[in-house]
Amino acid sequence: MASSIENNNEKLTLKSSDGEEFLVEKHVALQSTLLQNMLDSDCSSADVIPLPKIDARTLALVLGYCKKHADASSSKQGELNSFDSEFLKDMDMGALFNLVLAANFMEIKGLLDIAAQKIADTIKDKPHQEVREIFHVENDYTPEEEAAVREENRWAFEGFP
């Protein structure tokens, strides 16, 4: 890690799946465990690092998150928390899934956490038909299996979701 402190202004280039390139300060990139491991294993920062699974729109969001968290590491947690909730506000489900996938691929735990929580908050208290619609999940139950689920839920009071 010593090298990352010495070369704090060093930058590296990330390339999205749709070919857009992003110049990123090294300390920002280090928010990602994937990139950190690549840099630790002497992967030259002069190279362009391709991220074949992440489109430009998502990567821009991810790097925005990383920059805030890298720069604010010594500042107050409260400020970061309000940034996090503002960051995901009004984001549509497709963008959230993209973000979850990117955070998972790039191994950015904090981002994965808040995006997963945001998705969970969206389906909280919604009936199962609505959850199916939001997530485009196909109902793959056979009638027998559906009966088995009802049987498992038979103690649940009527009116229970």
Binding site: I123, K124, D125, K126, P127, H128, V131, R132, F135, V137, E138, N139, D140, Y141, E145, V149, E152, N153, A156, F160, P161
Partner: peptide
Amino acid sequence: NSIFTCKRVSK
């Protein structure tokens, strides 16, 4: 209660 609901979403 939401976990209960999600059990019914799909197999």
